[in-house]
Design a protein around this nucleic acid. Structure first.
Length: 419
RNA sequence: GGAGAGGUGGCCGAGCCGGUUGAAGGCGCACGCCUGCUAAGCGUGUGUAGGUCAAAAGCCUACCGAGGGUUCGAAUCCCUCCCUCUCCGCCA
């Protein structure tokens, strides 16, 4: 959420951000409501002040056993009026708050303007595309040959998009999660968290999934809880409504969770195998930092995510999203796209974003700065990484002519665990 | 799910038969004074948000889990919801 004062003072900047992000918040209505709100607030305060004064006088008279009937009857009309204004104010505030939730974050000034992914900026790439002396298979064929997945049975028990990992496939996936958690914990200094995967409405609103994405999420009607689409949601909201001590910052969390996405309307598009799923596992990094340090933190997190791909020796590229591809809450986002030899395409395995104070303002996450002033922290998060497309890249990159897979050295110790 | 107790400022903790209570008292913290040092002691200060103002100061308003209600006036009375604790039931 943006500060209403900021919106008031930078209307055209906000208007441009809405347009560049292909959003449709009603800015004029917001300004109108803001105006109205301030007028009502002023009227309320003025009248309330009068009421407080006279009520004090009534109290005094009663104490002295004097007659206060005159004042009380006088005040009864004031009380009525006050109630009326208060009702209007409540309505106005509610509408304004709702409207403010539909205003997207403002893209960082360096973010390329463009309406879709074709305007994304290529930053760099790492490694090279692997060469094969044979025609490389795609991950599904490799998984079949090695009995790593059972997608038909996943579809039977839940539906398409709910994968079943079998035997070595299940082990491999689990080891990837373990490896990534430990890597970030030991080498990058993140604190591991285990968090709920069902969260309530305020939590979903805090990070910006609600109100916009309500239909993209699984919802448990009975309890009004949502299945999380990413660990970003519970982990960022962990500190909602809190005032953090300056000495606590930066906070760096890493958490593994299953993620659930309805992916409504995306059937048939890049959905083969593990490419696009309703349920998948992801290791997520989240940071809470001082505002001046958030863009350095963004670069650091990008490197943290890249380190995993590098440890596995997977070719990838880094892309900076343009305004039109940027998510609702993000100010700046890098995507990591890993090379998939089987499909001849780059697949998104990580998204690393700086939300600046957008989420912090929604969720009420503040800290006291060196001068003792209240400030909103900046929040960031990045996948590190999502397992399905990582599996795709691993299987396809390390496939052998005989259909087997050569496991990267980094994962071997995890797979060879003996008890 | 059932019964009971409770949710007050950074923390502890009064107030809860309605009327200078943003809120006693204590602790903590900050600054100052005092004292070889430390400790003790003394004094002052110590929330957030909104509004007003060019801005600061100042002033006004709101906030005692959340939301409604009663009243001239509510932390205090009533209703609903949320959370915590204890006991019972149920279950991985």
């Amino acid at each position: 959420m943006l500060d209403i004062k900021f919106i008031r003072a930078n209307t055209e900047l906000v208007r441009a951000a809405i347009a560049n992000k292909n959003e449709k918040a009603n800015l004029d209505r917001i300004l109108e409501l803001d105006e109205q709100r301030r007028k009502l607030q002023f009227d309320f305060d003025t009248l309330k002040s009068k009421q407080n004064t006279v009520s004090g006088e009534i109290a005094k008279r009663k104490k002295n056993k004097e007659d206060a009937a005159e004042l009380i009857s006088q005040m009864s009309s004031v009380a009525d009026e006050l109630k009326q204004i208060s009702t209007q104010l409540t309505t106005c505030n509610a509408e304004l708050d709702q409207a403010l939730l539909t205003v997207p974050n403002i893209p960082f000034q360096s973010v390329p303007v463009g309406r879709d992914e074709s305007f994304n900026r290529h930053i760099r790439e790492w490694g090279t595309k692997p060469e094969f002396s044979f025609e490389p298979l795609d991950h599904l064929s490799i998984a079949d040959k090695n009995a790593l997945l059972d997608l038909p049975r996943g579809a039977k028990i839940s539906g398409s998009g709910f994968p079943v990992y079998t035997a070595e496939g299940a082990r491999l996936e689990r080891c990837l999660i373990n490896f990534m958690l430990e890597y970030h914990r030991q080498k990058h200094g993140y604190t591991e968290l285990g968090v709920p995967i069902l969260v309530n409405r305020p939590t979903m609103t805090g990070t910006g999934q609600l109100p916009k994405l309500e239909n993209d999420m699984y919802h448990v009607d009975e309890d009004d809880l949502f299945l999380i689409p990413t660990a970003e949601v519970p982990v960022t909201n962990l500190h909602s409504g809190e005032v953090l001590a300056l000495s606590q910052l930066p906070i760096k969390y890493v958490a593994y969770t299953p993620c659930f996405r309805r992916e409504a309307g995306s059937y048939g598009k890049d959905t083969r195998g593990l490419q696009r799923l309703h349920q998948f596992n992801k290791v997520e990094m989240v940071r809470f930092v001082e505002p001046e340090k958030s863009y350095d933190a963004l670069e650091e997190m990008l490197h943290d995510a890249e380190a995993i791909l590098q440890a596995f020796g997977l070719h990838y590229r880094v892309v900076e999203l343009c305004t039109g591809d940027l998510s609702f809450a993000s100010a700046k986002t890098y995507d990591l796209e890993v090379w998939s030899p089987g499909t001849g395409r780059y697949l998104e395995v990580s998204s690393v974003s700086n939300f600046e104070s957008f989420q912090a303002r929604r969720a009420g996450i503040r800290y006291k700065d060196a001068e003792g002033k209240m400030q909103f922290v900046h929040t960031l998060n990045g996948s590190g990484l999502a397992t399905p497309r990582l599996m795709i890249a691993l299987l396809e990159t390390y496939q052998q002519a005989d259909g087997s897979i050569r496991i990267p050295e980094a994962i071997k110790p995890w797979l060879e665990l003996k008890i």
